[in-house]
Amino acid sequence: MTQLLNLSEAAAYRVKEMMEHNGEQGSFLRVSVNGGGCSGLTYGMGFDAEQHDTDQLLELHGVKIVVSSEDTDILAGTVIDYKESLMGGGFTIENPNAIASCGCGTSFRTAKKAGAPASCD
């Protein structure tokens, strides 16, 4: 069975830093899939104080992560990492279910769910 998500140690460290900076200690990291973007779907990541009955809960490297049951098939096997470069740092998301993505690098689609494309800015 494929693990729902994998959060790298670097990403977990950055998430914890952001939680502390924003006063969100004790919150969950919510990872979601939303409609939109050039290819039809976009990723969402943010802090949430609540876990819902329909959420799956994971704890990776000390970060509690919640994912809605509606998004688990789309996100199965996804790897979230954080990378630093001379241009700054940012999260990267590698989803083995994504069959296409756009030039923006922020939207995707899967074989089972295409979403509703919107124009890229």
Rank of each mutant, 00 (worst) to 15 (best):
E20D: 12
G90T: 00
E50N: 15
G40Y: 06
F91R: 09
G23E: 03
G44F: 01
S107F: 08
V79T: 10
P96F: 01
F91N: 06
E17S: 09
L60W: 10
T92D: 14
G105I: 03
G62I: 02
C102W: 11
A49Y: 04
C104P: 00
I65S: 03
N34E: 12
A100F: 07
M87A: 11
L41I: 01
E94Q: 12
E94C: 10
I74S: 07
C102V: 01
I65P: 02
A76E: 14
S32M: 09
N97R: 12
R109S: 13
A111I: 06
F108M: 04
S27H: 13
A111H: 10
G105N: 05
G40T: 04
L60K: 15
K83D: 08
V79I: 12
H21L: 15
S107V: 04
E84F: 09
N97Q: 14
T78M: 10
V31M: 05
S27V: 05
T42M: 15
V15T: 05
S101Q: 15
G103P: 08
G103R: 13
V66D: 03
L75C: 03
I74C: 04
F108Y: 02
Q25A: 08
I93H: 08
L75M: 05
V15M: 05
E20R: 12
S85D: 06
Y43D: 05
A98N: 07
G44N: 06
I74R: 13
T42I: 12
G90H: 02
G88T: 01
R109Q: 14
L29W: 03
M19P: 01
S32I: 09
G77H: 09
P96N: 09
F108A: 03
E50S: 15
D73T: 10
S85E: 04
K112N: 15
M45S: 02
H21S: 14
M45L: 08
I93K: 12
K16A: 07
L57R: 14
L60N: 12
H52C: 14
S39L: 08
G37E: 05
D53N: 15
G90D: 00
A49Q: 14
S68R: 12
V15F: 01
F108D: 01
H61V: 00
H52S: 13
T72L: 08
